[in-house]
Amino acid sequence: MPEEPVPAPADPDARQRGRGALIGRVVLGVASVVAVYLLVQRVDFADLWQRLRDTDPVWLSVALLFSILPVVGSAAGFLAFSPGRIPFGQITLVQLATSFVNLITPASAGGLALNVRYLTRKDVPVAVAVAVVGLVQTMSVLVTAVAITLLLALSGRNMSDAPHVPWLAVAIVAGVVLAAALLLRFWPWGRALFVKHVVQPFREAGPELRHIVTSKKRLALAVVGHLAVTLGFVAVLAASLAAFDQSAPLILMAVVVIGGSAIAGTVPVPGGIGAAETALFLGLTAIQVDESAALSAALLFRVITFWIRVPIGWVALVVLRRQNAV
């Protein structure tokens, strides 16, 4: 009698991938519901529609066009420090997806985690992926600090006008780092895990990381990318003011954009909702912009640079999930 075929054993990796895909779809669905809820709760659509009706359609189109520049600049800045070959179009989708993720996480934590996740899906060790994202953020802070110093000097303002350092947040971060260092020093099992998952991957990827941070072309691309982000936001704010027949010196608007972003980043609320709009409004009124126009321009700026990106970011995240990129 012929023997019956023995069924092939189940592939544990395939089962794990299926479970991960199911969890990813559930998380994406929950995040979508939360995002819609926050959007409905936070935005006064009647007031927003009334203000948008008063805008100049030409300048509104210009603002929308300039809003592409920060996305491209952010992707270029990330690409500059990424190891290996990464498609520019795909990393641009990741930067768009961070707008949706940041809506449901405080202080852009979701966007940072998404970038780390993307690199790990490209077979980059977790420790190296975290280091790359850290390099991107460090370069962004350095470029922004130099830019705001030069802008304040050119505008004739005192350095006291610059955003103050959030010393409480710095102290909390320093305390966490110190506690982690003490834990690794006196806990053998934790030290072994640290060596296995952090030190060893860094040793293996050391030459590639050194090449990244010493490459003049990569550093130049990073600087240009981060400058493009800042200039794009300034251009959007200038066009938003022009849409309400208002204007201000570009240098002062750059200070408002950078300072407002720094202030909103220190407030632990999802997407900087409320804090960003308030910081922009106060900054514009401080440079002698009419209060009504300042409020309208601040809301229009946030709609173009954040709220419009939320549904686009959701679509980008869905596409990346289907590509198994995150």
Score class of each variant (00 low, 15 high):
130 V>E: 05
144 T>N: 14
150 L>R: 00
144 T>C: 01
172 I>T: 09
146 V>D: 03
132 V>L: 08
134 G>N: 09
135 L>T: 08
164 H>F: 02
163 P>W: 10
176 V>I: 15
146 V>C: 05
162 A>H: 03
148 I>G: 01
136 V>S: 08
136 V>L: 03
142 L>H: 04
128 V>H: 10
142 L>Q: 03
168 L>Y: 07
172 I>M: 08
142 L>E: 05
170 V>A: 12
149 T>N: 00
166 P>L: 06
141 V>Y: 14
155 S>I: 02
135 L>Q: 01
156 G>P: 07
173 V>G: 15
144 T>D: 09
136 V>I: 12
160 S>F: 08
130 V>Y: 03
156 G>V: 08
159 M>C: 01
176 V>Q: 02
140 S>H: 12
169 A>D: 09
156 G>L: 07
148 I>Y: 03
167 W>L: 14
126 V>C: 04
135 L>H: 00
134 G>C: 05
143 V>I: 13
152 L>M: 07
143 V>K: 04
135 L>R: 03
157 R>A: 09
173 V>W: 10
159 M>G: 07
151 L>N: 00
132 V>R: 08
137 Q>D: 11
125 P>D: 12
137 Q>E: 12
163 P>S: 09
137 Q>Y: 11
129 A>S: 14
142 L>P: 02
124 V>H: 06
158 N>R: 13
164 H>N: 09
142 L>A: 15
150 L>K: 01
135 L>C: 05
143 V>Y: 05
126 V>W: 07
123 D>F: 06
155 S>H: 02
166 P>G: 06
130 V>N: 04
131 A>N: 11
123 D>I: 01
156 G>E: 07
140 S>V: 09
126 V>H: 13
164 H>W: 03
148 I>E: 05
171 A>M: 14
144 T>A: 15
175 G>T: 11
131 A>C: 13
148 I>V: 14
158 N>H: 13
144 T>F: 09
126 V>Q: 15
134 G>V: 05
146 V>P: 00
146 V>F: 11
127 A>N: 09
172 I>E: 00
158 N>E: 13
166 P>F: 07
137 Q>W: 01
124 V>G: 07
162 A>L: 07
158 N>A: 14
169 A>E: 11
148 I>K: 03
158 N>V: 06
142 L>K: 02
